[in-house]
């Protein structure tokens, strides 16, 4: 839920010495992304996408660095990150498995797939396995209703899933 709020006044964020937004990245953003938008803030979403792609999640420290880079308030960056579902503020597993739970997938049996994954990985949706390999997510419509039930594993979508098939897919990853 995009609008869930947590008290954050006393939050301590973890910091490291090396910046997440490296000089090289900043140069690339200045050259490739900034000219595309009329305001610097417009470049925020593509930059967040790039940072998440680079690190797998968006560390709080990087939000401050992005804010400095774009000359906006860090709160504006956090606002974006907390609103959109695909941005993670904590590290996720090497393989992110997103099972579609919308209407076509539900009536075509997504629950069996989800229950099987829960048992196999030993985690609930929105959790990561202890070894950091898998994160299980439930997602809203993936736009592949003709292939229900479907799931995203990292960037690849798999349609018409059966339990055998999802077993095979996961075993191939391991």
């Amino acid at each position: 839920m995009a609008w869930n709020v947590k008290p954050s006044a006393t939050t301590q964020i973890q910091k490291r010495d090396a910046p997440y937004l490296t000089e090289k990245m900043a140069r690339r953003f200045t050259r490739k992304i900034l000219p595309r938008y009329e305001t610097k803030m417009g470049a925020l979403m593509p930059i967040l996408n790039e940072v998440q792609h680079e690190y797998g999640y968006i560390p709080y420290q990087s939000m401050i660095e992005i804010a400095t880079f774009l000359e906006i308030h860090p709160g504006d960056v956090l606002d974006m990150v907390s609103f959109y579902e695909e941005y993670h503020t904590e590290p996720v597993g090497k393989y992110v498995i997103g099972v579609c739970q919308s209407i076509a997938c539900e009536v075509c049996g997504h629950q069996a797939i989800l229950d099987h994954l829960r048992g196999k990985l030993g985690i609930e949706p929105h959790e990561t396995t202890d070894d950091g390999r898998f994160t299980l997510l439930t997602m809203e419509c993936l736009g592949a209703c003709e292939g229900a039930p479907c799931a995203l594993i990292n960037d690849d979508r798999h349609d018409n899933l059966s339990i055998d098939q999802i077993d095979r897919l996961i075993d191939d990853l391991e």
Partner: peptide, 29 residues
């Protein structure tokens, strides 16, 4: 004409036309 791809990050409300514009401007949709 310049044409750019803008990738969103998972919010149904971006499908609403003004929500979509807010998202391109770098704000919550």
């Amino acid at each position: 004409v310049e044409c750019y791809l803008h990738r969103s990050a998972g919010a149904y409300i971006c499908g609403e036309e003004t929500g979509l514009l807010e998202a391109i401007e770098g704000k919550r949709a």
